[in-house]
Design a protein around this nucleic acid. Sequence first.
DNA 1: TTGTATGCAAAAGGTTTGCAATGAT
DNA 2: ATCATTGCAAACCTTTTGCATACAA
Lengths: 144, 144
Amino acid sequence: MKPTERHDRLASFEQECRRRGLALTVQRRTVFEELAGRRDHPTADQVYDAVHRRLPSLSRTTVYRVLETLVETGFARKVHHPDAVVRFDPTTGRHHHLVCESCGSLVDLDDSVVPRVPIPDARGAGFRIRDYTVSFNGLCSSCH
Amino acid sequence: MKPTERHDRLASFEQECRRRGLALTVQRRTVFEELAGRRDHPTADQVYDAVHRRLPSLSRTTVYRVLETLVETGFARKVHHPDAVVRFDPTTGRHHHLVCESCGSLVDLDDSVVPRVPIPDARGAGFRIRDYTVSFNGLCSSCH
DNA sequence: TTGTATGCAAAAGGTTTGCAATGAT
DNA sequence: ATCATTGCAAACCTTTTGCATACAA
């Protein structure tokens, strides 16, 4: 991510906080910057480890709370991973996932690489579908 | 599920156990029957509750272990659900999910309803893709 | 100044593990 | 008889909560 882009994302996060009347604390900024700067899908604890190194006073509880705030404000997504530990994804637009069946590693796949999936008729199930994500499973380079 | 089908699945599970040298215990049979008879995606604890009623001596630990065995032998799948608790799905063939953004409910969607997704070229990411699942998100009937 | 956000400690799930006893082959 | 599987209790890990303090607005 280019410095400009990073700055833009932070600015837009701060703007959204103001819009919602959320206080702009160092903790929120730090956690946001950490997550936004990553291309993987860290757990709350992994974010905590990284962030705690920079700002030792920041607590694990706050990391959990800020990540929740990021999800609510649309700056992160929860990713559903087979290991049953929540992971956070800073990419919120439509994209897809490659999941390794062997080691569980998870990689993003850009939407442009995957042909559009027509939204099926789920009226039978009473569902109003808004979007979708495709999870491809297989073996990653280290596992085959 | 018809009685015949239920019998067939149990028989094929028992056969797979023998093939792998896994002992055919009452516990394995009972947990398998419980999961295979459900159309939802229960947590280990939900399976435990149901099974423990029928066989009070069966412990929670064993339920966790048997469910793991079912996944290893291909008779169940772990489902990635937003609540970060592992859920088990007795349907192992390709199928898709409808997830409600509001209440988190999860419903299966048959593969026949979803047009085939061509497997993308993931060589860049070093992945060998074997299959896929589409997660549709939106609102369920109770939530809209 | 006012009320929200944080940190701490403790609780609350969910899941795993060590070990002795049990039971399938 | 032998080895895998079970049950129990305890440990472990992740996440949440209550409450007093600190800090942004």
